[in-house]
């Protein structure tokens, strides 16, 4: 069992798009060494909530967040919080693989370069190699680092995006349905990877697939209509849900 350490504490979070409330009073803990899964039907707010954790919702006009989200005890919506630093510490992997139209090497080197994490070329090479190894992609691409990242297969692209996120040594990695655009074999590889990564990082994964949540996560939060219906140890949620709605969703009665 890996060491568990509380990383993000979200308390009574409300999110509004203009006048419309998208998230209603959500409180969740996210810890290092643990994979936390957000499940729920489409439009339940799970992706919206995920984006509030590294303030990617800032890019959406008219979006407003209330309540408190603390990273290592520091409120990420406080005025002193630098969103650049926050996003470097809380990385994100998107639903559709989105490598930059640059070489594989440059995709991974992008983050360290803008944050100034590598002193010289050798450092950078080391960071790129380490990140690609951790993302399980090194052996496949080590001979063609100069090729375009967009030329890779979908599964490889997604692992490249994970490597890109890892390269800036984040503390948390948010994954927004990372396998929804992938075939089952690529999905299996990503799931293995998530299992390997959880030792070093706090991982949050939004997923449509309850099987995936059951396979990869240790904690699960079930979102419905903008609220968290149930949050707890994954095994409990799937085998012994406390709430009727959770049971209905898990047994496939809706969603």
């Amino acid at each position: 069992m890996t060491e568990q350490k509380l990383k993000i504490a979200a308390r009574n979070v409300n999110v509004f798009y203009g006048a419309k409330q998208a998230i209603n009073d959500v409180s969740i803990d996210i810890s290092t060494g643990v994979v936390t899964a957000f499940i729920g039907p489409s439009g339940c707010g799970k992706s919206t909530f995920l984006r509030t954790l590294n303030r990617m919702n800032d890019t959406i006009a008219g979006c407003r967040v209330e309540g408190q989200i603390a990273l290592d005890g520091q409120d990420i919506y406080a005025s002193g919080m630098d969103v650049v630093e926050l996003r470097a510490r809380v990385g994100m992997v998107f639903q559709k693989p989105n490598p930059f139209p640059k070489s594989i090497y440059e995709n991974v080197a992008y983050g360290p370069r803008i944050h100034g994490l590598a002193g010289n070329k050798a450092d950078m090479d080391a960071i790129v190699e380490k990140s690609l190894r951790r993302a399980g992609l090194w052996d496949e691409v080590k001979d063609r680092l100069a090729e375009s990242g967009t030329a890779l297969s979908g599964g490889q692209q997604q692992r490249l995006c994970i490597a890109r996120a890892i390269a800036v040594s984040p503390e948390v990695i948010l994954m927004d349905e990372p396998c929804s655009a992938l075939d089952p074999i690529a999905t299996a590889r990503i799931e293995e990877l998530i299992d390997d990564l959880k030792e070093r990082y706090a991982i949050v994964i939004v997923t449509h697939s309850m099987q995936q949540a059951a396979r990869v996560s240790q904690r699960t939060a079930f979102f419905h209509l903008g609220t968290v219906v149930e949050y707890g140890v994954t095994e409990d949620i799937f085998t012994n849900p406390r709430e009727e709605r959770t049971k209905d969703y898990i047994t496939g009665r809706y969603g």
Binding site: M56, T59, V84, E85, Y110, I114, R164
Partner: peptide
């Protein structure tokens, strides 16, 4: 998605524009 990808890594807007969007 390109823009989001860059911003999500902690790039500032101008870095995103200069290094990702414009290229």
């Amino acid at each position: 998605a390109m823009r989001d990808g860059s911003l999500a890594m902690g790039a500032t807007k101008s870095e995103t524009i200069k290094r990702v969007l414009l290229p």
